[in-house]
Design a binder for these strands. Structure first.
Lengths: 324, 324
DNA sequence: CTGAAAGCGCTTACAG
DNA sequence: CTGAAAGCGCTTACAG
């Protein structure tokens, strides 16, 4: 029975066993180059377990000069559900390597001291950008490596849009529209996706997409579908599934048939897409490759891996349901 | 210009100014009972700023014996969107009090060392329960206070269900059904909500709700609505908006009208509810009161507030759209 | 008003 | 095979 209710230190374990702090430390850390007899090793491990010893991470960090924390900076996009599995996997793999993953979603208008100043991670892996002030604050906080993944700013984030356009094209649609979100957190991403859609249309030799913002509560969706109908648009690329739902909902209410005369495709394979009537076609992204990439990039940044990983191509699947 | 690229310590600031480390510390910490001349104070602050000084949190934690971290243990429920604003608010208020909020969502089947062992927060505020092993690990990790909010296990979590039943009753429905989710993370919560629904039905003097599980991809929703129709059910209480969407979608496909002969109400006011056709009625919960409660509970647990806050009643609104 | 110093818990080079 | 000791950066009681 532990007699004290104060937390147990390595010194307590040593004292309880009549050993030195060093010996205990060698066993607990598996320090290479030390020859500890198996019996001693076992006694130490058992006693640490019995006393409920947990190393003090503050002391470890101070001594090592490294927290072994990896902060994943996540964009404030409404994609938490697909993010969850991704985070689980990354956390698992980094944990295996002795690192702890801290997901951190900055919000626009944050009024709080950035988390890296309070935790001093070894690495920040940004799936969103850091501005100059943030980068300086991170550097001053001893963060050794701030990496912004190219995936966030480029290919992976617009690849789904390319698939949406190609899907509609392959179904015979030649006059397309793009439905933008209004949420201000999404304007930048929306612009990037629109660019990708236009570039794909140009590649396919069809006219540019007609663009309209679509919001939930202001009639914009109804106006958009009516104008698209009048303009002879037959296929709509929606920014994501929620925007697709707004477009389809408005079309159904106005009496425009989906998928004909108006086909609509979303993106993300959100939970509700198959419950919708008509069920929404969408594009799903598999996270496996990205997990490996992010994990290895973090370990590379932490100095645990010599070579950075090769960039991965996003793994996308068009899920055709009833709306196309 | 800082000449070194190593991180700046308080000793660097002192040296650069020809002062002692103590004086610098007193200024930086606003230590009471010290009379530092305003000119010295300003010099210290300016120099710290100029050099980009950031206190080392590991050293502070080691010295203080306290990390000033508050870990919010979140249930693994698909409610991230409503959680986000809540977390922002709690983080802000705790930051004002000198504490940092770490949201932590445990997943079933976690294969990772619990985050509190790696961060040693002063307080864990659980909106989910800790099992015995976790509680021991938290205690061994020096967590002073582990609090499980009564809100998570009781009133707040089922109050919405009570409102759903009352709403259908007020619209004249007397034979109700309950649509359960299949997701195993939600079984416990589902059972609690069902109990609340049955208790409310008993209070209102109507017969018990008929219960069916409803899932996305197996025809269970279709079977459920057909059987409910045959049994004369006119109102469905859905576990949440997603389940409501499945029920409504199945009803529309089978040709059962919504809201008549079958009314359906969800819960959470999820993003897509108003895009749905028919738009889903739902119950929304305002987070304001809960923010205050959680914040004050955390500060109380950290020893910063003498009295614990009074429990708050959940603030609910029925949002009637087209499905009821 | 300011300085010298202790000590939080850990890891590990060094000495036996 | 094991121990005595230094030092990471901080806060703060104590002495002037």
């Amino acid at each position: 029975m532990p007699v004290t209710n104060k937390r147990v230190t390595a010194a307590d374990v040593a004292r309880s066993l009549g050993l030195s702090r060093a010996t205990v430390g060698f066993v607990l850390n598996n320090t290479p180059g030390q020859t500890i007899p198996e019996s001693t090793r076992k006694r130490v491990l058992d006693e640490a377990e019995r006393l409920g010893y947990r190393p003090n991470p503050a002391a470890q960090a101070l001594r090592r000069g490294s927290t072994r924390l990896v902060m994943l900076l996540l964009p404030d996009w409404p994609i938490e559900s697909s993010m969850a599995g991704f985070l689980d996997e990354v956390s698992y793999h980094l944990d295996q390597a002795g690192y702890t993953t801290i997901p951190y979603t900055r919000r626009t208008g944050d009024r709080v001291r950035p988390l890296w100043e309070r935790l001093h991670p070894d690495v920040i892996l940004g799936l969103g950008e850091l501005d100059a002030a943030e980068a300086r604050s991170a550097q001053d906080s001893g963060v050794r490596s701030v990496i912004t993944l190219p995936v966030a700013s480029s290919v992976a984030v617009v690849a789904g849009t390319v698939e949406q356009v190609r899907h509609l094209y392959s179904r015979g649609h030649r006059r397309l529209a793009f439905a933008q979100p209004v949420d201000e957190r999404l304007v930048e991403l929306g612009a990037a996706r629109l660019d990708a859609a236009q570039a794909t249309a140009a590649e396919l030799g069809i006219e540019p997409l007609r663009v309209r913002p679509v919001s939930g509560n202001d009639g914009s969706a109804r106006r958009a579908v009516e104008e698209w109908r009048d303009e002879g648009v037959t296929g709509v690329v929606a920014f994501n599934d929620f925007v697709a739902a707004l477009v389809v909902g408005a079309a159904v209410r106005v009496g425009i048939g989906v998928p004909a005369p108006l086909a609509v495709i979303g993106q993300d394979d959100s939970l509700f897409t198959e419950a919708f009537v008509p069920a929404l076609s969408t594009v799903r992204m598999e996270m496996g490759g990205l997990v490996r990439y992010v994990t290895e990039m973090a370990l590379h940044a932490a100095g645990e891996l010599v070579a950075p990983p090769e960039e991965v191509a996003p793994d996308l699947t068009v899920v055709r349901r009833e709306s196309t």
